[in-house]
Design a protein around this nucleic acid. Structure first.
Length: 428
RNA sequence: GCGGUCGUGGCGAAGUGGUUAACGCACCGGAUUGUGGCUCCGGCAUCCGUGGGUUCGAUCCCCACCGAUCGCCCCA
């Protein structure tokens, strides 16, 4: 490869041979969304930078170092979306969906996200996510439904090595109290913590708990747990969520150190991870939580909301790691083999007519010999091969060969379209 | 931003400081003058990431760069 006309770092082409898996996954997920009564929303690929600064939070890694931010010709600062929730929240406020008769507003999206990171297995600069947002309900049953939906998506696709981890970050009051307790707890050890954590301690002490470098520090084990700081309301909310999960038979693990990287979460936070082998360092398949303050932050009415984001590249990886077969639905119905100039013309017309009648057909365009054309038909896994040669043209016939059995018969060309459409589409 | 590994034909993969750089897969053609999946034969024709350097000579040695990949951080 001489030219450097390659796809930018961290991006990939999804080629025809791979698209099948993507379409299958998308179809299955949409089917689940339909059953759960969620509606699709499509928002812009880029937003005003401020949408993410305010929505995602200034102290997050995403905003601090991972955004694709640029200035447009009008001098506006725009950013390619690094996650899905902020844009949806913005759209919800701007379009006054809080006034919709149907509440809560239950949305899903498929969207590509952009994060400036060093690529590695399961981590791309452009990535695809499926996501859910439910706005307008503070019912813990909604939290459970959202989690249930995510788990159902994975299970309907055949994944089994799943682990659901949940936590509660509590409401504003609980978080504040816990935050102060964390600062009090870690400050005496500040000098012993890693550089990142020293900064985190100032900005967002919750995330010190997330640190992998300092995970063995003695102060970690004794750090105050958020669960001990939940006020009555937060505590009972979390209890209800767990009860609903229990009621649906969804297994979970409570992990008080689960914090999530985004600032906007409160109450329920969750992650779904894969135990499957071949995953490298990446284990998180999906993550989400409640963000009751964001809509207000965007100038809307006080609106409780919850959602999650699910990485589709990682989902595909998980399917592969677990050996899930993707059904092949687009085999070719017919392949027309033509030999000779006259036959070629008849073939073109036949291909056109069959296609017009709903049959999937292809033919040779490489000037291959008959044998080569048959090989191509075999490669394409065509069900039938229709042969037009000199004999057929002379006798106004056509040879129909069923590839699976090798049986073939010579039929009059006259009603061949009807005959074949009946044969191929009769059952549909 | 930091660290490890790697970079040979469409793909996979050997290899050597020095005439024509293995092999496998795939593809095309022939054996079978109009028939696929098996077998055999042939073809696929200067190409060894880029730019420098060492050398009489480098794909193989040195340097830089670019790219890929895996990991750290963090996450999807």
């Amino acid at each position: 490869m001489v030219l450097s006309m390659n796809a930018p770092r961290g991006t990939v082409d999804i080629l025809p041979k791979d698209v099948k898996a993507w379409q299958y996954v998308e179809e299955q997920i949409k089917e689940v969304c339909k059953r759960y009564h969620y509606k699709e929303i499509r928002t812009p690929v880029f937003e005003h930078t401020e949408v993410f600064q305010r929505g995602v939070g200034d102290t997050t890694d995403i905003v601090q170092k991972e955004m694709y931010t640029f200035e447009d010709r009008g001098g506006r600062s725009l950013t390619l979306r690094p996650e899905g929730t902020a844009g949806v929240a913005r759209a919800y406020v701007q379009n006054k969906l809080y006034g919709d008769v149907n509440q809560p507003v239950k949305l899903y999206y498929f969207a590509e996200m952009f994060r400036y990171e060093r690529p590695q297995k399961g981590r791309m600069r452009q990535l695809n996510q499926f996501g859910i947002e439910v706005l307008g309900s503070a019912d813990p049953a909604v939290d459970a439904e959202v989690i249930d939906l995510a788990m159902t998506v994975y299970q309907s696709l055949g994944l089994t090595s799943l682990k659901l981890v949940i936590n509660s970050l509590g409401d504003k009051e609980s978080r504040e109290n816990h935050r102060q307790a964390l600062i009090d707890h870690f400050t005496p050890h500040k000098e012993e913590l890693c550089a990142d954590c020293q900064v985190r301690l100032e900005q967002n002490p919750l995330r010190v708990l997330d640190c992998k470098k300092d995970r063995d520090h003695p102060a970690m084990g004794t750090a105050p747990s958020i669960l001990d700081f939940l006020n009555e309301e937060s505590k009972s909310y979390f209890e209800e969520v767990k009860e609903y999960l229990d009621a649906m038979g969804i297994a979970y693990v409570v992990d008080p150190t689960l914090v999530r990287g985004l600032d906007y979460y409160n109450h329920t936070a969750f992650e779904i991870m894969s135990d499957a082998k071949g995953f490298g360092a990446i284990t998180t398949l999906a993550g989400g939580g409640r963000y009751n303050g964001m809509i207000e932050e965007f100038g809307g009415p006080t609106t409780p909301a919850i959602g999650f984001g699910m990485g589709l590249e990682r989902l595909l990886m998980a399917l592969e790691a677990e050996g899930v077969e993707i059904p092949d639905t687009d085999k070719l119905d017919c392949y027309v083999v033509a030999v000779g100039k006259e036959a070629e013309q008849a073939a073109v017309r036949l291909v056109h007519d069959l296609r017009a009648n709903g049959v999937g057909v292809d033919k040779d365009y490489q000037q291959r010999k008959m044998k080569g054309q048959l090989k191509a038909a075999d490669r394409y896994e065509a069900k039938y091969v229709l042969i037009l040669g000199e004999d057929e043209v002379r006798n106004n016939t056509i040879t129909v060969k069923e590839m699976a059995t090798g049986e073939q018969q010579v039929l009059p060309i006259e009603n061949i379209v009807d005959t074949l459409t009946g044969k191929l589409l009769g059952g549909k």
